[in-house]
Nucleic acid binder design. Sequence first.
DNA 1: GCGCGGGTGCGTACGTCGTACGCGGTGATG
DNA 2: CATCACCGCGTACGACGTACGCACCCGCGC
Lengths: 289, 289
Amino acid sequence: MSVQLACASCGKPLEATNRGRPRRYCSRACQARAYRARRAEAPADAPAGGGDAPEGRSDAPPQLTVERIVRAGIAVADAEGLDALSMRRVAMDLGMSTMALYRHVASKDELVALMVEAAMTGVPLPDSPPRDWRHGLERAARRDWDLYHRHPWILSKVMVTTRAYFSPALAADSESTFTSFDGLGLEPADAFRYMFMFTSYVQGVALTYVSDVEAERQARLTAKRGEEEPATGAGGARSPLFEPGAYPRLGPAMRAGADPWDLDALFVSGLAGVLDGIAADLARRGIES
Amino acid sequence: MSVQLACASCGKPLEATNRGRPRRYCSRACQARAYRARRAEAPADAPAGGGDAPEGRSDAPPQLTVERIVRAGIAVADAEGLDALSMRRVAMDLGMSTMALYRHVASKDELVALMVEAAMTGVPLPDSPPRDWRHGLERAARRDWDLYHRHPWILSKVMVTTRAYFSPALAADSESTFTSFDGLGLEPADAFRYMFMFTSYVQGVALTYVSDVEAERQARLTAKRGEEEPATGAGGARSPLFEPGAYPRLGPAMRAGADPWDLDALFVSGLAGVLDGIAADLARRGIES
DNA sequence: GCGCGGGTGCGTACGTCGTACGCGGTGATG
DNA sequence: CATCACCGCGTACGACGTACGCACCCGCGC
């Protein structure tokens, strides 16, 4: 009974080995999972205790760590988009073989999740309470806007973290934004509704932004290959949008509102409208701002 | 000089063939492109004129057409998500070989673009003018909401069509929504700002919706494989969000606002706020609604 | 009539991806 | 000193999008 009969990682029953020593894992996957768990438990205190590599040597290659892998992944995604992110690519950038990464991250999905966490932690949360709710939400919107500019690839993955998984960085961000409503005496459900409306708007604008970034990247790729500038897109001069009479409302609106395509100005203007909507609801409930 | 010297599709110069007959295409790609163009020009009038296959025969397999390919692609994406959409899969569903599809669509990207157009055309535009701007925008929002429910995969591709490419269906949708502002005497730039704010909000909520759909699909896949229900996500009971004291604002707000996760109600509520914001701006400009 | 060459349909194959599997080296242990 | 679980990573597999080219066919010049 004292003999270990279950895999230390997955808990599956385990036949005894022929020698006296018991085996601990039922498969290589479980073995690697336990390895990663051990690494995660003892993150950086080892250099003081054990006889680790000094790490400062110039000839010794730096050890592979989760942090270095995540940093390399973020660098690739920032520079060339999530499509260019592959395990082989990250490993090559780090000078390691592909499979060496799997000692530290369980899969590409986990790597991306870690990248999201790291990137969100990279933009600092405000440390002072906001002057009022409007100031707090504007500050939070600017923070998110910065985040999506630095790491456009986040948007397509934040949604994965929205409700199905728990993300500490995202929760901290939300908690910080919720402080905007402190002192108003709001019902939690109302605060949630305001947050939902606010976040939806910001994410919607971010979607337009990342689509622009992606389209520009695509255009740069095809231009480098085909050497031709289409100008037939919706923003181009020969766009069907601007054929006279074709789109009598949309055409002039695009010309007037988006001809110098200033997404920041549009973002700020729309944000003001969203906050006005919240103000109207607050007034209707008799809550002075 | 009268001898054809350029490829009929790409225009690249073309060396003459050794025989008297001139060649017309510089490559197989150009040949196929010309084939598709010809098919697109003469869409469905052939059955009356030429001696086409009757198509009604039971033993004759139905001809491969762009429409059938697009329909099959939409069926796959609706049922199993864009990740499950592959050329091999569509071809298999149609009982054809993979490369046969490339006679009718130039690439997977073009197939997806055609799918987006077809799906957007599938939800009819309103044919009566709206009672007022608020009614018009609510109607448009409901239409988009329906669209994203029927075809959640559209959202990640609509952004591609936003400004870089011109999409007739998307332009028609926008034009229709713009009619909401008819009669208000708005400057085109103001109408554009309102549209931007409105569309951003709707897309933002849609992003949450499609993330839910995708997460549910993922959960179903892993549940079918691992037979375990995690319940440790942000919505689960054992979520860190609900540890007492961990997130004093976010936790109660999630409990109160999202415990029966009714995205439709949240959507309507936030939409009312966005429209209130537009109304406030209209009032500030002295435009009676 | 007949051969030949280009159009047509599609099968094969290439280069990419994520990652399961398993081999050789290693070090503690009997 | 032999042994065997563990460690690090190289190889390989099955997917993907699609370029390339083969086999067939048909229409034209001889």
